[in-house]
Design a protein around this nucleic acid. Sequence first.
DNA 1: TTCAATGCAAAACCTTTGCAGGCTA
DNA 2: TAGCCTGCAAAGGTTTTGCATTGAA
Lengths: 167, 167
Amino acid sequence: MPTRAEVEKHLSAKGYKLTKNRRILLQGLLELAEWATAQELFEYVAARNKKVNFSTIYRNLDLLTEIGFLCRVDRNNDIHYYALNHEEGHHHHLICKSCSKVLPLDFCPLSSLGPLDLQNFSDIECKFAVYGYCQDCQSQHLDKRQTTERAQDHKIIPPTANKPPGR
Amino acid sequence: MPTRAEVEKHLSAKGYKLTKNRRILLQGLLELAEWATAQELFEYVAARNKKVNFSTIYRNLDLLTEIGFLCRVDRNNDIHYYALNHEEGHHHHLICKSCSKVLPLDFCPLSSLGPLDLQNFSDIECKFAVYGYCQDCQSQHLDKRQTTERAQDHKIIPPTANKPPGR
DNA sequence: TTCAATGCAAAACCTTTGCAGGCTA
DNA sequence: TAGCCTGCAAAGGTTTTGCATTGAA
């Protein structure tokens, strides 16, 4: 995990300006223990700079991702979570379906695939993530679960489900 | 790949009604060679039933996914592609970044991970997809590429990129 | 006949864009 | 001072929802 000074040094070395919003955003990325959504990061920055706009958050998240400081994961419901890259290079994640905790996974499936499996595709990239309930959440299985998420994403069977026409 | 009759039999066995839209949608899913987006499926159905609404498409895609007939993959740009499950059970895909062709992958990374790797997470699910350029597209590398997609998703370096403040 | 399925319209949601003005280096 | 960065506002695209009506079984 880089320190704030390291990130800022790296940023300015690359020619980017250290604006107020960028400093606060970086601070937020460093402070927020769990991975954060654009919404959460916006709220963090907005609490410290009332005038900040969502577009600024997105522009900076894009920038930081582009230059490799940020890592973005997708939860099942297609919400993006961002965090500073605390791992070196390419890696994957283990993501809690309840609390959204994200842990690094050392394993990359590409190492198990040969050119034959990959049907001569070029410029290979892979997306891989494992979802489950972390130990903390397993004990609180039924109460803490985010019920707003779609059931089929979680394999949670809601009380009313499993009868055919129950949508 | 299930036949249309099989799917319809299975549907009505589960208590769902075989409506006009559903029949056309299933036909579309069977006919369209490549994986299709909600938009494409909407167009397919709309061409055969002018009055159909997008909400109906989504409701049916959700339904078919929920009961396991459909498989949904996400392209890098977060657009969803749907296709009938032609594989049995859990599987993954190889997706062309240019033409969106989707091929099945036999390998599942979960088979290489033990409980230790998975940090005692429960109800494990995995999302895995490999992206690249298929052989057909490799020859047309530069002209056929969808330039609207974000560069960092493709590792395409656009002419103006790679200089720091060039957004 | 019954209630699931639909069409319609509107909104929700996340994200992007253009532009004029502000601020960092 | 130069031009990157920002706030603002508006729109983008995909997906969801409520409600009255239609239609399959």
